[in-house]
Structure formats: structure tokens, C-alpha cells
Amino acid sequence: MIAQPKYISPQDDQLIMSPTEYLAWESVQDSRHEYENGRIFAMTGGTVPHSQIPANLSALLIPHLRGKGCKVSVNDAKVTIRSGKYYYPDVVVSCDERDRFSRDFLQYPTLIAEVLSPTTEARDRGIKQQNYMLIDTLQTYILINSERPRIEIYQRLDLGWEYLSIAIEQTNFDHDDPLIHITSIDLQFPLSALYENIDFFDSEQI
């Protein structure tokens, strides 16, 4: 997600909501909240690169998937896990007919991408990744670093998940621009396309 989730309670610290109560409550809120084990997590604002990266990824996904019956959503579409958890991925793709008329949440994603930041990385690599991988239809889970050019891709195989990490040491693409291949949707693009219009600080500038 774009920023650090903080546990909140609409009424008191002991309040535990049911999934149905959460969906009704969330539908009238001005900001977004994730739901996990009866508790609500408020999503706060993030950096410009954290916002730009999902936009860049969606710009690659939408034309590639046009005409294939796939939905591409950025930031505002909830994904539900079978156990009753609800998350807002940075990018989610569903190509499943069962999600065609979905309005409140998606249940059958093919691809989920999260953009990492210091405040979200532990959850994105931890509990959220574990829960996402319980979704039977999920074929690809992507983690994208917002502070350095690095992408990590988990792709489902028959017996588990294949892991691939691609990164470059320099913060520009003049000499090295590796090709990324997302096999589940047969999409290829240079790493630079994911980081278009993003300028990184050199270590001595930080």
C-alpha cells in the first residue's frame, strides 16, 4: 500500500468488526482502510515515487491486456482473501470472469503488485504476501522498490513459487536496463519503463 497502515477503531480500542460490518463502514469513509482479523488499518499518504510507480505499471498493463477481458486497478480496488481479509494492493489485475461485475472488491486476481517503502515493507513481505499467496487464482506477486531500481517477482509454478530479483546498482539506466518478463500475462518491458519520470537520490545526496 502507499503508506503505513495504523490500527484504528471507529469507536474504542476493543472493537472487533465482522467482514460484513467492515464493508458497510468502509463504504461511507472518506479514506481507505484495510481489514485483517477483525481490525481496521487506516492507509495514510505516501511519496511521489510511490504514487508514480503504480501509474507506470498500469500504463504498461492496460494496452497489453486490452481486449483480453482483464481489469487493471490502481490503489482503490480492494482484494479479499478467503479467510475474510481485505487489502488495497497498489496494482491488481483480474482476468477472471467471476470478477467481471465486481463492485466492492475483487476475489480472483491474476497479478498483485505492491510498492515498497520503509513503513510498508514488513507487511508487504510478511502477512500480506502470505495471505495473497493463499488466493488460488493468483499467478504473480510483485514487490517494487520505490527508493532504488529493484523489482522482485514471485511466479506460481506447479509445485510452488519461483522467485526472481532484478536490480541495478546505479540510479540511472544509461548502461544497464534489464528486461522484465511477467510470464503469467506474457508481458515484457525494460526496468526503466517502471521507473519513468522518477529521479533517485545518490547516496551522497541523502
Rank of each mutant, 00 (worst) to 15 (best):
N197L: 07
R148D: 13
T80I: 08
T171F: 12
S146Y: 00
D124Q: 09
E34P: 04
Q129H: 09
P190Y: 10
L57N: 02
E169V: 05
D12E: 14
S94T: 15
S58C: 15
K71W: 07
Q205A: 14
T140S: 15
L111D: 02
T47F: 03
I16G: 01
E97F: 12
R82K: 15
A77G: 10
Y7V: 12
T119C: 01
V92L: 04
S27D: 13
R123Y: 14
F105D: 11
K78D: 04
I112A: 05
T171Q: 08
P109C: 10
S192P: 07
V28L: 09
L191H: 07
D99A: 10
D202H: 11
S9Q: 09
D199Y: 05
I166L: 15
E21I: 07
S18T: 15
W161N: 10
P54C: 05
A3K: 05
Y7L: 12
I185T: 05
D186M: 01
D96L: 07
E169H: 12
D99E: 10
S51M: 03
P190F: 08
A113T: 04
I40H: 02
K78I: 05
L23C: 08
G46A: 14
P54L: 02
H50C: 02
V48A: 10
V28P: 00
I182C: 05
D124R: 05
L138Q: 06
L164D: 10
P5E: 04
D199C: 06
P178N: 10
V91Y: 00
L157W: 01
V91L: 00
E26L: 02
R32C: 02
I151C: 02
Y87L: 01
L65C: 10
I8S: 04
S192K: 08
G67K: 10
R100P: 01
N197R: 15
N56R: 04
V115Y: 01
K78P: 04
S102W: 05
G45N: 11
F173C: 09
D136H: 13
Y7C: 03
F173W: 10
T20V: 12
Y88H: 06
H181L: 07
Y154D: 09
A42N: 06
R98W: 06
L15D: 11
A77N: 01
Q129T: 07
Y163Q: 13
Q130L: 12
D96R: 07
Y87H: 03
L157D: 12
Q170R: 15
E114L: 00
I153V: 13
N197Y: 06
G84M: 08
V72H: 05
D199F: 06
V74Q: 12
I8C: 11
L187E: 05
T80F: 00
Q107E: 15
G38F: 14
D136W: 04
S83Y: 02
L61P: 01
E147C: 00
P149W: 03
S192E: 08
S58G: 15
H181Y: 14
S94E: 07
Q107M: 11
F105C: 13
D13K: 14
E162S: 14
